[in-house]
Design a protein around this nucleic acid. Structure first.
Lengths: 345, 345
DNA sequence: TTCAAGCTGGTAATCGATTACATTCAAGGC
DNA sequence: GCCTTGAATGTAATCGATTACCAGCTTGAA
């Protein structure tokens, strides 16, 4: 069954291809009767327009590119799902690409999307490089970032208000009597992870927490990092009583090895995650965490791209920010009376 | 910065567009010197070919479509990651679409992919309908299914050997002294879920297990289904001592409410999952499950599509099958001495 | 020397839409 | 009744590659 082309349809409807195109796009009025004939022909011949031809001529592809750091981190599938669902509702398809936290893969993914002529690119990753920003600047495709510092350029950005989130978390911990706090960060190679570390330190200070260099452990945004961090924290001579993790995956990893080590959370140590993935509720103890709405993020990103399509330089880059929200479950509790530090000679 | 076209490159290199095209594709030999000139021009002008034009003329899009049931089920992201990584290594981009277990969405997703002119479609879903198969039959695009019964047509299929997996699981349970077994299935609306139910019953019989209608509970392949199933099993007058779940998500949901109900697994009941997602190791008790290699599945699917591109009708549709492998963790244990059935009057 | 074969490279048709511009025809103004 | 105007449709250029076909130049065998 060969694919039909517009000429065939036109002939069948006894009109020109221009007319067929017009009834399809509604770009110009067509007599009701003629339109009906065209539609009938389309129906009968089972015609669907060739998207390559269409894109070639019109310069629009109805494709968005979606770059994410790590599909395996449950945070992303949620975002992907919402993004894709918004897109298909508008007849836009999405090309997906996973970067695995690698700037090189991000860069090559980006280039592929550019070559593919997508109409917009959502960069839901943390490993943004200067080269990438530079490339993007020389290109007219709408782009939206997740959570990159403003420095980068004049791009729309979906911001997560980490400061506010951390503050909420720490106030909760304060109320429970905690004074010392540790942090399991993302990879130090990621600019955004470093930023969050700074924010953490700032907020901790503001809230009157003690922090220490050795309580700042580098993770990897995955389970593994949390596991290793837990092992370290539980063998420290003097450990904090509360830990904030850069995301739920590392918090869950943390809890897992705490369990394995027979250390009880939250009795010995409280831990808080970030994201609120489905598994956080399943793990034992259930994770107290900062919920981050993937729906909101996806929606902001999507609409930024859609609006960006009318690339008027005047449009001030709207930075929509989304607020994390503390969900208190079982991994946080009152600070232990006698901190382990007592053991020190 | 305008995008360059081939003509500009050709002029700069003092050759024709045909020659440029040739050095790019290597479709025909070109003198080393000329090729060098062309490459230089490409470099200097920063030229990249317009993919729409290319696809239009050549009829190949270098795009694969990937349809999955549920990105939020961690099984899929793993598969997606491998698939995408194989694809990009070959210069193929992948359009992603989530069906949410809905045949309608699958169908519309498929149609979008077809209209988009993709070079291959991987259907990693369970909700395949007759309409879909029919549509696919009338089309020349290579397609590969995950795990659909052969009846469907002459398509390549990546099969999971459920029978073997179930057998392995049940032998394990047998050794632990279990005699009664229950099953939490996928949605009854899915043909493939029904099939697996049959396989389960068959294998259970072969292994000498008792089954009952009321021990066959319909789930939804998500956490929720497992939770509900657990609630039911734990309030039954007479419950089995072992449960097989259609996937890890439902098994984890099951364990979660078991914990909430203060029922201990595996002391009171053993549960086995399917897939072996990352979280299965994290949950408490850690889940005994059948590991299913996403890497294998993705690879089989991908290569089926790639080979399918030379659509010789002669190529007998290779059905590659992948074997689940039992991973014993903590959610299975010896059958309780005195089954709850003793409570019956 | 001559001619066929083999390389390289160019010319132009082509893929299937969109769209600028031309045309037709009817209605309405004077 | 004639000319302007505008709405509906058609004609053909166009998007930017690929590729069938052709032309010229070597090379080597007869």
């Amino acid at each position: 069954m060969h694919r039909m082309d517009m000429l065939t349809v036109a002939r069948r409807a006894k009109v020109s291809t221009a007319t067929v195109s017009r009834v399809l796009s509604g770009s110009r009025p067509v007599t009701a009767e003629v339109a009906a004939r065209v539609r009938a022909a389309i129906e009968e011949l089972n015609y669907t327009p060739n998207s390559h031809a269409r894109s070639l001529r019109s310069g629009k592809s109805n494709l968005f590119g979606l770059l994410v750091s790590d599909v395996r981190n449950p945070f992303f599938p949620d975002a992907i799902e919402h993004f894709e669902s918004l897109a298909t509702a508008q007849g836009i398809d999405v090309i997906f690409s996973n970067t695995g936290y690698s700037p090189e893969r991000l860069m090559s993914g980006l280039r592929r999307l550019l070559d593919r002529g997508v109409d917009g690119i959502a960069v839901l990753t943390s490993e943004v490089s200067d080269e990438l920003v530079h490339t993007l600047r020389n290109v007219k495709v709408p782009v939206v970032f997740l959570n990159q510092p403003a420095v980068q350029g004049n791009f729309p950005i979906v911001r997560v208000d980490y400061e506010r989130g951390y503050r909420e978390a720490m106030e909760h911990l304060s109320m429970l009597g905690h004074k010392d706090i540790g942090f399991v960060s993302g990879p130090n190679t990621l600019f955004s992870a470093m930023r969050r570390k700074e924010v953490f330190l700032q907020v901790a200070k503001d809230c009157g927490f003690s922090t220490r260099d050795e309580w700042m452990i580098e993770g990897d945004h995955r389970l593994g990092g949390g596991k290793i961090a837990a092992a370290r924290f539980f063998t420290m001579r003097s450990a904090p009583t509360a830990i904030l993790c850069s995301n739920d995956l590392t918090a869950i990893g943390f809890i897992h090895t705490a369990n394995r080590l027979k250390r009880s959370i939250p009795q010995e140590m409280s831990v808080i995650g970030f994201d609120d993935i489905a598994m956080s509720e399943m793990v034992q103890p259930a994770l107290t965490t900062l919920h981050l709405s993937r729906r909101e993020i996806a929606a902001h990103a999507f609409f930024a791209l859609q609006n960006g399509e009318d690339r008027s330089r005047k449009t001030k880059s709207m930075a929509s920010t989304v607020l994390p929200q503390l969900v208190i479950r079982e991994s946080t509790g009152v600070a232990p009376e006698k901190p382990r530090v007592a053991k020190e000679r």
